[in-house]
Nucleic acid binder design. Structure first.
Lengths: 344, 344
DNA sequence: CTGAAAGCGCTTACAG
DNA sequence: CTGAAAGCGCTTACAG
């Protein structure tokens, strides 16, 4: 093109039409005749032309970009993000790409001022929040996003003020399924590793499902069998130590996440206990590592592909001005070797 | 602001300066007096103003965005990406954020036409390629990027036409370190799991290091001990089967990646062999799962934080018009339990 | 150090 | 179905 980059004006000149028609043809506007459209597109291809997104974004006010924010615990020394969210990120980019959206990604800490970084600056049309399950800590930020009329959706339990903004798993049902599985294998003294208060609504719901399953069997819930743990291996291991030190009898552990379960199994074996011989362990999420460890982890799967698709769809609905409905995806038990009693 | 969004004109009006001065002040131009700058910034803060990136991008031709492309094997049924790249992605976003760049991410398949998607369309100022180690397959695409004068850098071994574009690990040294470790523990019949041809330059270099270490001990390389495997667990397991079926004697395995090593260990145990008792196993990468499995995997660490920082720096150098130098980061042996002979 | 003006490359009323 | 014109909100010569 001699000087400078190829623009829609160059295409227009070559096609013998106006620049506006080029713009319309390239976007498949029904206002353009089939013949014109084809001619324009062919020339664009030949010239290796691509619409300038900055220009299009400025004029239209749309970026066709979604921002995905992954929460990162600032206390974590190793900058580790739950692998489940990482895999979801992959599915989000694919779901977005199918709808012709790009994905901007950032790992954010609680202290940072992300709440206005994206939409106000016209970097993205909407935001997906991953790992922001603890609504109590994020209340201010979420409030701010709402006041700024930002388009955003959240992965996690539904919560106050989040109607039509959440996609999650039926955590209570998931907790019940996991516990029922352990009970069906004859385990009676099932410990729960995970916090169960408002700060972790997903864990709280899984605990409620745990209670449901026990109640259905007429087994009383023993509060001494619940041990706090957040989503890290080391905290699963720490919970094992506390459980062992407490002297409480147990023959199974329901870990509220796979990461906790993995740390739990390692600590149990370190303590000379066999899994599943002495203790059966079930996790939650079905991260990749779950199938790699020995014994392979029986867990409750939250399909990340479906989750990502639902999040993207819900966000696009909101961007389009719709209301959208929150969704709870069905959990699914994946039976492997960590609970015993099963031939594969 | 009554109608519409807040723009630099609103700020200018309130500050009693021209819009151009607002633009300069917000970008910390030295052309603006300290006093004016502070006044403008304060008003911008009060009004919750953010520069419109589309407008800035259109005028300046810079997006201050980097695209990270992760290669995804289309033969993979589970859309899985090597966790090592995922963790690197996190570090890339952090390194970019520190330099005030956003990161666009996409999981791309070989067949897709990504080579012109990003820069020509003004979506990003440069591209980071992750998982494109097999330069043979990507030659055409890389050629195309070069012809389009795209700014891009690659994680992997240096290769023809990639001077000043690669950041990688000293793979040969890493292979030597891993092998030397096994030798120092008395292992003599060390199998290598990984392809060793041009198509996998990183694995090839690790194999060369393996040969170096054996040669230094005066041990002849036995070609019967090399088994092809790509970066997936199942292929590590498949290599174990072939090794066992071959009847070749062995007491250790150097797996060219952690994923291969994890599949290898699982298959060995399935076959009734103990790790490290019967067979010592060493991996490569130090992914998160390496420390979670039993026995914990001894491996060669490639620091993802350093790698990400080097990739971003190199890319920004190129974007700024500089040449930049390719870099090889030092590998580091991480000793855990999968090779035995070590008290921790 | 500051301002008036041009212009980046599109999309979108508006008119036909 | 098509075109001429306006304008999105900035950054950047240019002039002072």
């Amino acid at each position: 093109m001699g000087s400078g980059k190829t623009t829609s004006f160059h295409i227009a000149l070559m096609a013998g039409v106006s620049q506006a028609t080029v713009s319309r043809a390239l976007r498949d506007s029904p206002l353009v005749s089939e013949a014109t459209r084809e001619k324009v597109k062919q020339i664009a291809r030949d010239l290796n032309y691509q619409v300038d997104r900055s220009a299009a974004g400025l004029r239209s006010g749309q970026t066709r970009t979604l921002a995905t924010l992954l929460f990162e615990d600032e206390t974590a020394t190793d900058n580790s993000v739950n692998p489940y969210f990482l895999s979801m990120l992959g599915h989000i980019t694919r779901a977005a790409a199918r709808r012709d959206y790009d994905v901007l990604v950032a790992f954010q800490q609680l202290s940072e001022n992300w709440h206005q970084h994206y939409e106000i600056s016209n970097r993205a049309d909407g935001i997906i929040l991953l790992g922001y399950g603890n609504y109590v800590s994020f209340e201010d930020k979420l409030d701010r996003l709402r006041r700024d009329d930002a388009h955003f959706v959240v992965w996690g339990a539904s919560g106050p003020g989040l109607d039509g903004r959440t996609v999650g798993c039926e955590n209570r049902l998931g907790g019940e399924i996991a516990t029922r599985h352990l009970l069906s294998l004859g385990r009676k003294r099932i410990a729960f590793f995970g916090e169960k208060d408002e700060r972790c609504p997903e864990f709280r719901d899984r605990y409620a499902g745990y209670e449901d399953a026990l109640a259905a069997k007429g087994i009383e819930v023993d509060p001494d069998l619940q041990f706090d743990a957040r989503g890290k291996e080391s905290l699963g291991a720490a919970a094992v130590e506390r459980l062992l030190a407490s002297g409480t009898r147990f023959d199974a552990i329901f870990a509220a996440s796979d990461l906790i379960a993995i740390g739990t199994i390692a600590a149990l074996r370190e303590a000379g206990l066999s899994v599943p011989g002495d203790v059966a362990v079930v996790g939650y999420d079905d991260i990749h590592a779950a199938s790699c460890i020995t014994p392979a982890l029986t867990t409750v799967r939250q399909d990340p592909r479906a989750a990502a698709g639902a999040l993207v769809d819900l966000l696009l609905t909101r961007i389009a001005g719709g209301k959208g409905d929150s969704r709870q995806l069905p959990p699914q038990l994946v039976v492997r070797n960590s609970c015993g009693g099963v031939k594969i």
